[in-house]
Design a protein around this nucleic acid. Structure first.
Lengths: 218, 218
DNA sequence: TTTTTTATGTGACTAATATCACTAAATTGA
DNA sequence: TCAATTTAGTGATATTAGTCACATAAAAAA
């Protein structure tokens, strides 16, 4: 990859020395849509910085039940990989490419070196911790304080924004997995939303009304 | 406060220059048992480093429903105060002194300065993010994947460890608040534990069998 | 086209938790 | 000491979510 290309993908990182170092020591990886990038128990050797696509971060319990936490989008990195790496502990989460995703993997030693060397990297890491902490709180609020109908509606909004569309190509089972519930529950709740004419249901697709987000906040 | 005293309270921070700086720029505060230190919406101007006692960190929803997240113990700091401060955003959590608590408040500019200046402070901050992230995951697991009976048992163990006792001086209402449920639910579940002879109930007190922790993990 | 697979719809039932209503006991404090 | 307050116990009922069983429909494969 060329410096110019990296610069374009990461508009927030402007320090040419940092970008040069990223190219020199980082390795570019491409993951196809749906590919699992990390699973709980696996050791992480790199700090991933997303260049293109999106990664879905999920928490899992012992029985394999899952819970969606947040997306990593271009220009972002994973706070958990920062902490897991440093502590040389295995991953606590599952990361799946939500679409075809390109990322640059930074070796952990370089990350630690750069927090001293590059002010911008230090700020990038600090910003990462901050946004991820907030997203963890959002995820926590959902499971702790919200009912499934509200969680589902927020999930739809999050997906719409992430995919920049109002047609979600997914199955009820997939949604159920990400919300840590069962397919029947999601089917029924979606049916309720359809009755209210807020969405329309098809096989493998959900059409969402343009004003869905305003509707749900009432 | 004297350097020697601070050294003793914070055995993990050995750099004398760092400790000197903490004394010079930090301010010592004492909070009585039960005193609220921060509430959601309030701005945080200091990074607190706990010297004595313990602080209970809680998440709240709009209706005032609460959820216990974790304790801050001596030698620790709050990851959320680090991120909130830097972003000059209001607090996302409620912090309450769990016992009489002494802390030293570090001005936010000093924190940022010290992450460059003192390797040990940088490591301290990194460690803080790491442990807090893990504790957030534990809290998330509990609400996402565990039933109330298990959450209650884990809560009892956490309290026992924190207070280094097997007599908890608390009310059912207090426990219910911290677990985000209602008093009746807790009363009933405690009664079940009493029937199993794992605990004994009194007014404002719960006596816990010494082998409680081993019992629950079966 | 026919079969097979995958996805969805839905009734019936169960489980977990929340809420309401009330009683009773322990503690406080006037 | 005795009324008021706080804390705890518990039945009845409601709500929410999870599970089971099966029907139906759409898409993919043979």
């Amino acid at each position: 990859m060329e410096l110019e290309e990296l610069k374009e993908k990461l508009p927030n990182l402007t320090d040419p020395n940092l970008l040069e170092a990223m190219l020199k020591y980082g390795t570019v990886h491409v993951f196809q849509d749906g590919k699992t990038i990390t699973e709980p128990g696996q050791f992480i050797k790199m700090v991933p910085v997303i260049l293109e696509g999106a990664i879905k971060i999920m928490r899992m319990d012992e029985d394999g039940k899952e819970l969606f936490l947040y997306y990593l989008e271009p220009g972002e990195t994973c706070a958990l990989s920062l902490t897991c790496c440093s502590a040389s502990k295995p991953s606590e989460i599952k990361a799946v490419a939500e679409e075809k995703t390109t990322l640059i993997g930074i070796p952990i030693q370089k990350h630690e070196e750069w927090t001293d060397k590059f002010k911008q990297w230090k700020e990038f890491v600090a910003m990462t911790y901050q946004t991820r902490f907030m997203e963890m709180l959002v995820a926590l609020d959902a499971v702790a304080f919200k009912r499934m109908d509200e969680r589902l509606m927020r999930y739809i909004v999050t997906k719409m924004k992430q995919q920049k569309t109002n047609e979600l190509h997914t199955t009820h089972q997939e949604i159920a997995n990400e919300l840590g519930t069962s397919r029947e529950v999601i089917s029924r709740l979606l049916k309720q939303l359809e009755k209210k004419k807020w969405i329309e249901l098809g096989r493998n697709i959900i059409y969402i009304r343009d004003d869905f987000e305003e509707l749900i906040s009432i």
